[in-house]
Write a protein that binds this DNA or RNA. Structure first.
Lengths: 382, 382
DNA sequence: TGCGGTTTCGCAACAGCGTTGCCAAAGTGG
DNA sequence: CCACTTTGGCAACGCTGTTGCGAAACCGCA
């Protein structure tokens, strides 16, 4: 049954049937998402109608609901284009907030973002991820409490990003690289109990990728790969506008792609993993070689998935951003159609913002699955 | 606007808004898909309701429409489980048919399948794919005409599978490996004009993958990779129950994944592509090494995408099926969770059947996109 | 044999969705 | 000043899945 109940810790529950409630929520999320994308410029009802394919009337009804709920508001008028000037609708960012938590190996960052994704308050503090569950949870709880005070409207929940692997569906950690003591820890439920808030857990790379989606970095077809080179090497994949997590939500293990058959051994047990090769090159200070390796791995990925765009990020990479960018671009440009390469926008804390977006994503219909469209392209009628 | 018009050759048209028509068609396709999956055993209304999450009443209405349209029929009763015995509903396979066309390098296979996917008539004839467009189109037209005679009910259209690369959306071929003269040829529209039927074009690997989905080979999460080793090496990816084609519908280029950095040169311009390594090993008759290479590539893919299942097929591979299967399994088993490996079921012409399924897929809601579900797993409430 | 319980399924009324038809408002351009 | 265009709301409508209720068909027990 697809009731409105938010499916607690329980089973996956497929239930692909769609009822009127689902339809309304789908369209509402769609409009809300467009309003967010429009940013402070806003959008007129007619524009929303054109973009969604819905009737202007339907958009009027939907926006009326949103305005009644306080999520959207009218904001003046735009210049006429020959008739009645359009009324601008804008998202009301303060209507709700979400907390983002970034648990890194040596630091804890907590932020509060509003509906538009803008940071309201951010705090960073040192943290030893290996200090034990209680200590870490205490620190998170304390920091979140400080940040919560700044939330005006509803607080929707907290999104937590940390190094994988872990199970996004159940919120249980696996053998977090370097900190095996976390294996099997139900972080999501433990934190939900402490904070008294809904909690979502995901890998840092996925959070970053999601944050980039909602910041509008996805291409026209809405697919890209985010490659993160820091203390390790990982990837967040966005396919069709949604983060791809895979069957057991373990997707994105880019680092253990074998790139040099029978190459140097990797802690994972294999030989010639791209992560070993890259980190080795980084240790030697050979940026050009690292970029070439990264580019080769990215090219493999682009050819396999036909991705629109490659985004680069991560601490190590950002130290030589320009060199990496051009190095990766050189490899990618040589093979078939040129796929754009870019470095993640500066001035943003990509991961912690993305963590908060884990909570917001469902509001804006960016969760995957949902995409009920009709015209089937690819068929030619005589 | 998402009207009911089937979107001819025109633009992609996003239009993600959902109206009542879309909702009904979504649920209808869902029920039809479940009926097909149930096969000759059929399914009761109550079963369909439980599986879709819809109300029994809704299912009754939907199945009534399907029965009125001749697509479904009642077929006796099942044993009672303590109350009124359930009425079995079955798909009426003869209600409609689809043509499948497999254009291979040296052969043309054409088949006619009914709604259940069963072959009614199949013809194979030699063909030179390099003989020029007119010759090939003539051959296809003639063979399709012969097979069409066997179609009883409606003929929905023709699906064409051939070696890539090509653009699935527009139906235009690219530089088909070994036959560059096809570059830019609008196969879909040309054939649609000749046959007087809707036509869909796709890569042979994608068609095979789709055929395997509809034959129920997909795992519980509905994701797998089909690896095809024949004259070349390619893959068909199924993610979330739908074939993943990527931004430019070019996904699945598994063969040109670089596996041995700075290895032997490949015609594609790179060095150390898995295809070169594999074909080389095949030429040497070294099945074990080929399997190891294939397994390593598959492991890369599994880790990157978190796939449920790896299916193996293709002419070269099937000649030593058991050896390849165990060889690939050995590599995959060693890395993390064991992902099942299997060889494509024998006694089926996987590609040509899949080609026909390209036409049927939309009927059963297996086209991708469509998946309107609600409960957002991954969130824990306190 | 009779009766309560269970399961399946349909008819009728219903609430809610987006759509259609119509009209008011508010600009532009001659 | 009068077309004309564009935007957007109100009311009625058709259609969706849902709810309430009842009939049918079978099991199990007395």
């Amino acid at each position: 049954m697809n009731r409105t109940s938010p499916a607690a810790t329980s089973a996956p529950a497929p239930a692909p049937g769609a009822n009127l409630t689902a339809l309304r929520d789908h369209n509402t999320a769609l409009v809300l998402g467009l309003l967010r994308d429009a940013g402070p410029d806003g959008a007129s009802r007619a524009e929303l109608a054109a973009r969604t394919g819905l009737t202007p009337q339907a958009v009027s009804k939907i926006t009326a609901r949103l305005r009644a709920a306080g999520l959207a508001a009218e904001a003046g008028r735009r210049a006429s284009t020959g008739g009645k000037p359009p009324t601008v609708l804008r998202l009301v960012p303060d209507a709700a907030h979400a907390v983002g938590v970034h648990l890194d190996r040596d630091a804890l960052t907590v932020t509060l973002v509003d509906l538009s994704g803008a940071e309201t308050a951010t705090r960073t503090s040192p943290l030893d991820l290996g200090a034990g569950a209680e200590t870490v949870l205490d620190a998170v709880t304390a920091e979140v409490a400080r940040v919560r005070a700044a939330a005006g409207g509803t607080l929707l929940g907290a999104g937590v990003a940390l190094p994988g692997p872990l199970d996004h569906r159940t919120g249980v950690l696996h053998r977090v690289t370097g900190f095996p003591q976390w294996d099997g820890f139900p972080l999501r439920d433990a934190l939900a109990g402490r904070l008294g808030l809904p909690v979502v857990v995901d890998k840092d790379t996925n959070a970053a990728a999601l944050g980039l989606v909602l910041r509008g970095c996805a291409g026209p077809a809405g697919s890209f790969a985010y490659l993160h080179l820091g203390t390790g090497l990982g990837a967040g994949l966005v396919l069709g506008g949604a983060v791809h997590r895979g069957a057991r939500t373990g997707a994105g293990e880019f680092g253990h792609q074998v790139l040099r058959l029978d190459g140097p051994p990797c802690p994972c047990g294999n030989r010639g993993c791209i992560e070993v090769l890259c980190l080795d090159a980084v240790a030697r200070g050979d940026v050009a070689e690292t970029a070439r390796l990264l580019g080769t791995g990215a090219a493999n990925l682009v050819r396999l998935l036909d991705i629109d765009l490659v985004l680069l990020g991560g601490g190590t990479l950002l130290r030589d951003a320009a060199a990496y960018e051009s190095g990766v671009r050189d490899v990618l440009g040589g093979t078939g159609d040129a796929v754009p390469v870019a470095v993640t926008p500066a001035g943003h804390r990509t991961v912690v913002e993305g963590a908060a977006e884990l909570v917001l994503a469902s509001l804006f219909g960016r969760e995957g699955r949902a995409r009920l469209t009709h015209p089937s392209p690819g068929t030619s009628r005589p």
